[in-house]
Design a binder for these strands. Sequence first.
DNA 1: CACTAAATCGGAGGCGCCTCCGTTTATTAC
DNA 2: GTAATAAACGGAGGCGCCTCCGATTTAGTG
Lengths: 210, 210
Amino acid sequence: MASQPPATAKDEPDATAAKPLRADAQRNRDALIEAAAAAFATHGADASLEEIARQAGVGIGTLYRHFPTREHLVEVVYRREVESLCAAADELALHHPPDVALEQWMQRFVDYIATKRGLATSLRILLNTNSTLFSDMSSRVTLALRQLIEAAVADGSIRSDVDASDVLHALGGIYSAPDTKDWRDRSRRLVSLLMDGLRFGATKSAKGGG
Amino acid sequence: MASQPPATAKDEPDATAAKPLRADAQRNRDALIEAAAAAFATHGADASLEEIARQAGVGIGTLYRHFPTREHLVEVVYRREVESLCAAADELALHHPPDVALEQWMQRFVDYIATKRGLATSLRILLNTNSTLFSDMSSRVTLALRQLIEAAVADGSIRSDVDASDVLHALGGIYSAPDTKDWRDRSRRLVSLLMDGLRFGATKSAKGGG
DNA sequence: CACTAAATCGGAGGCGCCTCCGTTTATTAC
DNA sequence: GTAATAAACGGAGGCGCCTCCGATTTAGTG
């Protein structure tokens, strides 16, 4: 009974599947998201919607049809970026030893968060309003991180008494002061420090300091 | 030394005095406030600023010179209204017995608050941001209420063991549910009820129920 | 009263938001 | 292929925000 036929049930604005968009519509939607991501990155979350439509090569009407409010658009872009960040975890895991993968991913995470520090208003409102969004993104990130950690633990390159939420909180502390000029270096050092802490007491000893 | 010469000191945007505006400027400023009060009352705090300028008979540039942001204008109007509400206390005290003055003023207070329930966004932000505004208005209202209460206590028409902040809290409870249709009647009844409570145990007995 | 400097005015102009609806296009049926 | 139809497009139009600067008014001064 709950097989989700696209009939009367209200469907969430989920990205993939659900209802096959017409080819041109799908193309335009993608172009809009792409353009929006670029615009938000450049001008913050209050970038001009008309400019975004222009960059995407569609009319403003099309933008509004796909994304009735600015927040809708911001949400989609945000979800996509978090997804991409998390997907990078798999990628790193494939091409690096588990501990290196973990460290590099943590660095990306911190960098990404630092970027988003500017998205202030719209994203802040969104995360407060739409609690689903927040919990979705949280669990997605936690999952990605957990897999990296488990692999590193299994590999013996980090200690086994930490879990993803511990590390997430630790990472959270790192980006809390992006007001200085050299925050980038600092964050790199702190991530490295955190990594050393994780290596401490691992079954396989690290290369050591030198 | 601290005689406030209009030289280097930063002057707050206080209403009265401080620096004598040019005659036309003062006239326009008043007209703008008047028009804004009307517009906010009618259309809420996001009334069109251009419309306000139009109603005031001035150009939009003039509006922006006097009030750089919407919030500035909202603040001034809000302060004025609270002031006017409080001034009404004196007026009522002059023309009515103390207990009647008190009851009528409380009714006005509740009505006024109910009105402002709609000003949501702008005013809410303002009260959170500008804590001075909140405390100013609080103490102004408390003062007005205290004088009414003291007069009624002195007159013997209400009990003597209540103070302004007690009553203010009691009034606060009354406007907390303006979602029904007959909230007006209800609030009237509740104010009356509160008033009866205040009369209970007064040295001078009230007319009684009849 | 004439004159001047400073203060003030006011609206045009540029931009962004959002809606509405005539036109175009993808898809389906034959 | 062609016709029919539902879906999607897109931009003009109306409105509001805010800035900028030439024109106007006021308050002094002699």
